[in-house]
């Protein structure tokens, strides 16, 4: 099964990449953009999607500083 894991900085933790992008957009004429955060996307085919949670906890994300979201493509 195809799965996507979205990993983003936890709310409240300084995200310098997100801030840099947020500052760059108005410079290109895109107004009204707020709350920009930059994370990572991991795409993978898995035989047992029940293992994804454990994969995220142990390797794909660092739960101390990152939130993750598992999206199954069906």
């Amino acid at each position: 099964m195809r799965a996507r894991v979205l990993i983003r900085p936890k709310a409240g933790i300084l995200d310098p990449q997100g801030e840099a992008v947020q500052r760059a957009l108005p410079a290109l004429g895109f107004a009204g953009v707020t709350n920009v955060h930059v994370g990572r996307l991991v795409e993978l085919d898995v035989e047992d999607p029940a293992q994804l949670e454990s994969m995220c906890e142990r390797l794909l994300a660092n739960p101390l500083v990152e939130d993750y979201e598992i999206v199954l493509a069906g």
Binding site: P9, I13, L14, P16, Q17, A20, N62, L64, V65
Partner: peptide, 10 residues
């Protein structure tokens, strides 16, 4: 304990 994140000065 803890973690290391990207430098605040990027």
């Amino acid at each position: 304990p803890g973690a290391l994140l990207g430098n605040a000065n990027r």
